[in-house]
Amino acid sequence: MKTDFESIHTAQQADSLVRAQLVELLEGGFAPNVILLREFDYRKAGIILDGLHFSAWILLGHIRARQQTLLSFMKHPEQNVDVWPDAHWPENHTPESEQEWHQAIDSYAQELNEMISLVKNPATDLFAVQPNGKTLSWAAMTTLHHTGYHIGQLKTIGRQLGVW
């Protein structure tokens, strides 16, 4: 039979493990998202391949919009009840400049780091059910799942365009 100390210690270990795994996956796991985005040639970021309705630039804008919504929920859960509004798909399919492409990636990375800081912080209760029935861990997992899906699309587009 475990003592109270052993139970608390085990719970703290589990909490630390979950936080570390969430951070690893938010960063992109074995294929870090920010590195992949920085490798993408901005001159090809506006190309829409036959059969698709998006370019790499549109995907980046869509990823950021969803991440911003979920980050806002994580920062102020009581004020952000609608965490899954209609998907935002940018109308312009091409960055205006290399600078705009890199600024968007920098903003994505900064927002991602904010989310990671919240996940890493032991004072953040990842599992408290919020007024909308969601948890902060749900928001982090939704972010990594959504981003991973679209990063896979971006990687496929890049391969078709000769980026990699």
Results as ranks from 00 to 15, higher is better:
Phe5Met: 05
Leu52Tyr: 13
Pro95Asp: 10
Val18Phe: 09
Leu25Trp: 01
His9Gly: 01
Asn92Thr: 15
Leu161Lys: 08
Glu114Cys: 07
Trp84Asp: 14
Phe54Val: 11
Asp41Phe: 10
Phe30Thr: 00
Arg19Leu: 08
Gly29Ala: 00
Pro32Gln: 02
His76Gln: 11
Ser107Ile: 05
Ala11His: 05
Pro90Arg: 00
Tyr149Asn: 15
Leu52Cys: 09
Ser97Gln: 11
Met115Lys: 01
Pro32Thr: 00
Val18Glu: 04
Ala56Met: 04
Gly162His: 02
His145Arg: 06
Ile48Thr: 14
Asp4Glu: 12
Asn113Arg: 02
Gly148Ser: 09
Phe40Tyr: 15
Ala65Asp: 15
His9Met: 06
His102Phe: 15
Leu126Lys: 03
Leu17Cys: 06
Pro122Asn: 02
Ala140Pro: 00
Pro77Leu: 07
Ala20Tyr: 05
Gln130Asn: 06
Thr147Val: 15
Gln110Ser: 05
Gln67Thr: 14
Leu52Phe: 11
Met141Asn: 05
Leu36Ser: 11
Asp106Arg: 06
Leu17Lys: 08
Leu154Trp: 08
Leu71His: 00
Thr143Cys: 13
Leu52Val: 08
Asn132Thr: 04
Gln12Arg: 11
His53Asp: 12
Gln21Trp: 04
His9Asp: 14
Glu114Tyr: 00
Asp82Leu: 10
Thr94Trp: 13
Thr124Ser: 10
Ser7Pro: 01
His53Arg: 12
Pro90Gln: 03
Glu98Ile: 04
Glu98Phe: 03
Ile47Gly: 01
Thr3Phe: 06
Ala65Gln: 09
Ala87Arg: 15
Leu49Lys: 05
Thr147Asn: 14
His93Glu: 11
Ile116Asn: 02
Gly46His: 10
Glu91Trp: 01
Gln21Tyr: 09
Ala128Thr: 08
Arg64Gln: 14
Val23Asn: 04
Val83Ser: 15
Ala65His: 15
Ser16Ala: 15
His9Pro: 05
Leu136His: 05
Ala45Thr: 13
Arg19Gly: 05
Asn80Val: 09
Ala45Ile: 12
His146Gln: 08
Ala11Phe: 10
Gln68Leu: 12
Val83His: 11
Lys44Tyr: 02
Trp89Gln: 12
Gly51Asn: 03
Gln153Ser: 03
Lys134Cys: 03
His88Gln: 05
Gln153Ala: 03
Leu49Asp: 00
Gln130Pro: 02
His145Pro: 07
Gln21Gly: 00
Met141Leu: 13
Asn132Asp: 10
Asp125Met: 02
Gly162Asp: 03
His150Met: 09
Ala56His: 11
Ala56Trp: 14
Ala45Tyr: 14
His76Asp: 13
Gln13Asp: 10
Ala14Tyr: 07
Ser7Gln: 07
Asp41His: 14
Gly28Tyr: 00
Ala123Asp: 09
Ala140Thr: 01
Phe5Thr: 14
Met1Pro: 01
Ser97Trp: 09
His150Asp: 03
Gln99Arg: 15
Gly148Val: 01
Gly29Asn: 00
Ala139Gly: 06
Gln68Asp: 15
Ala104Met: 13
Leu112Asp: 01
His53Pro: 07
Lys134Gln: 13
Arg159Met: 08
Gln99Tyr: 10
Val81Arg: 10
Arg38Phe: 10
Arg159His: 13
